[in-house]
Nucleic acid binder design. Structure first.
Lengths: 116, 116
DNA sequence: ATAGCTACCTTGCGATGCAAAGTAGCTTAT
DNA sequence: ATAAGCTACTTTGCATCGCAAGGTAGCTAT
């Protein structure tokens, strides 16, 4: 998520959402998947999430730390780095830049329908 | 854009936008690229658009027809098929289903920032 | 005739989402 | 104790997508 900006955003929505979720509160992968469900992104599988977490970690946007759990196996808690915060801000900006045109385009298409 | 629903949507936003633009009015590829710019999707190249148009045509969501132009080479005007209308409606639905959670996730992340 | 615009098409790459399958710790029931 | 089921993390491999780059060709104006 460095060089190519918008184009990546088109497929990188999940990445930004995960950054935002981690920002709310340090979290581990399994909980991320449950939070995404709560928010309404119900069909995002762990096969998507964990690779993203690893990638984000490799890019130093988040850092992970293993912690014991009372109720199950150890968890890897992630939190944002400064660079991660910057990238999240950038993501939000790009998301707005994408959303507005798309909404406009859709609205105008639907509107045309009504005049028919 | 048949079997896999949401996952395709994540990368298929452009496809839906092009369907919507064609719905407004039968259009040819070059004009689609200019309309996308007008709407604010300024960095979408023809290298993205034409493959999509060909794909949509192959999937029978649009049909094309060559017409002479007064001001340049012939244009291939596309218009939606019935199936294309259905898919566009489906796209809009999926877009809403994507947008709302993402907005919520972003909002909550930003909100957390303020309480800091 | 040559430059520049209009208009279309193709190739090839990198990135992504995700199904699928695997590993392993912990808890509860049998 | 041992099987079942949940929690939690990881890897592999595939299909798809966006797009830069390059190519073709008609039309218009200089």
């Amino acid at each position: 998520m460095k060089i190519s900006q918008r184009s990546q955003l088109l497929k990188g929505i999940l990445e930004g959402c995960i950054l935002s979720i981690i920002k709310m509160q340090p979290t581990y992968g399994y909980e991320v998947s449950m939070k995404l469900q709560e928010f309404g992104l119900s069909d995002v599988s762990e096969g998507s999430i964990y690779p993203i977490l690893l990638r984000l970690q490799k890019e130093k946007l988040i850092i992970g730390e293993m912690k014991k759990s009372d109720t199950g196996p150890k968890r890897k808690y992630y939190q944002l780095t400064t660079e991660g915060e910057i990238q999240l801000t950038e993501f939000i900006h790009q998301w707005e830049l994408l959303k507005q045109p798309v909404d406009k385009i859709i609205e105008k298409g639907v509107h045309y329908n009504k005049n028919k």
